[in-house]
Amino acid sequence: MKQNIWTRPLYYVIAFVVASISLYPIFLMIMSSFKPSNEIFMNPLSLPKSFSLEPYRNLLEQVPFMTYFYNSVVVSVTAVLLILICGSLAAFYIARYTFWWNNALFFFFLMGMMIPIKLGIVPLFILMKDLGLTNSLWSLIFIYTATGIPLSILILTGFFRTMPIELEEAARIDGATDLRILWNVLLPLMRPALGTVMIINFIQAWNDFFFPLIFISNEMKKTIPVGMLSLFGEYSADWGALFAGLTLSSLPMMILFFIASKQFMEGLTAGAIK
């Protein structure tokens, strides 16, 4: 394949420019976390005058960050796992079989994305209360699973469709059950898609603050974002501590994303599909 000699350098220029724009605000966030509140407003763009750890100290004094952190981990990890299980089972069913109701089922799931769920907050709150789940992390786990399912089914169904059907035929001849085919044959090939679903739902659960605001009033059950919100006052906020908190709360996700992109998203090598 002959290529114009300018093509590759152009690729690098585009990638580099976009990457800088992508990263700059994050750089700004981390930098701001080392500044005291008033310096953020006076010199918002400059490097911190001196790297002060005080915002971090303030943060840890003001809020039980480790408790929030623990709750966030429990909620996000459990919700993501439930989403992966429920989502891949349902998507497999929708993509691999052609029962007459399958399109309707697919669409039924998609509808979940088309409605502002905030509308149903009062019935939802009463439901959670009746189930005894208010002030329990399970209320968050269930609602994140439920809100994550539509997107996951959309993505996974699409990718199940791209899998060559020949793959499973051999397995079926050997008498493998659907579950076995799904687990042993298809899922390992779908790592990029699974990784994406995992990451995207993890982020959603990790960053959401609306549901915990409503369902959780017990300080010991709060997740990071809602804990951070207590740093926003009506007219003022301790922006230093806030940025420190946001930086700290983004870190685990950045780490997770590195791992996930190594584990799941390296892409399929030529030998993977045979």
Binding site: L82, I85, C86, G87, L89, A90, F92, Y93, I94, L105, F109, G112, I117, G120, I121, P123, L124, L127, F142, I143, T145, A146, T147, I149, P150, I153, D178
Partner: peptide
């Protein structure tokens, strides 16, 4: 296969 997804989704999204 679709039952777990339907159950959680139905209860916590569709119903409210």
């Amino acid at each position: 296969f679709p039952i777990p997804a339907l159950a959680i989704y139905g209860l916590f999204i569709v119903y409210p």
